[in-house]
Amino acid sequence: MSLFFIITALITMASAIAAMTLRNLVHCVLCLTVTFAGIALVFLQLGAEFIGFSQILVYIGAVSILMLFALLMTRGGTELTLKRWDPVHWITGTLIGIAGFGVMSFAIFNSSLRQSKIPEAKADSLHALGNSLLSQYVLPLEVMALLLTVALIGAALIALPEKNVFRKNASFSKNQESGNK
């Protein structure tokens, strides 16, 4: 059990670091997918089946695919964005990251939460989750549904091609061409 967690954590961390540092952007997103899968494995080890499989369904099946589509649509797949290697920039960024990690681990090692013991296996978390989502958290659930609808429509609207602009330009250039001829 413990060895399994260590392997998962190592793979997750390694692929996360790779996702944030690799040059090829598609490789970045594919590594990020491995990270998402590792996080889902951690959820499964903690006994949260529903959350773990939802994580795989949403992140690997949708979010990473969305990112890959966006990369290809912005021609990021072939372009190397780290052409300008700026050492000062990278050193400060890495230092900030390491400092943040240091502060957080200091807080973790000094907190009383470390003494908390793991209780017996939780029984039937799925039904408890469903019941609480539809009783205690019903208002946030409805708000979330509304948010998702708004996001769907908003994303479609934002990404719509600016039709009028194109049409105007196209007709303009066509007129010009015919005029020249």
């Binding site: 997750t12 961390m13 944030m20 943040g100 973790i108």
Partner: peptide, 15 residues
């Protein structure tokens, strides 16, 4: 693990 992933993400956003 959570702190490490968070800081990696932060580094990504900064770098």
């Amino acid at each position: 693990l959570s702190a490490g992933l968070f800081c990696t993400g932060l580094m990504g956003v900064l770098l």
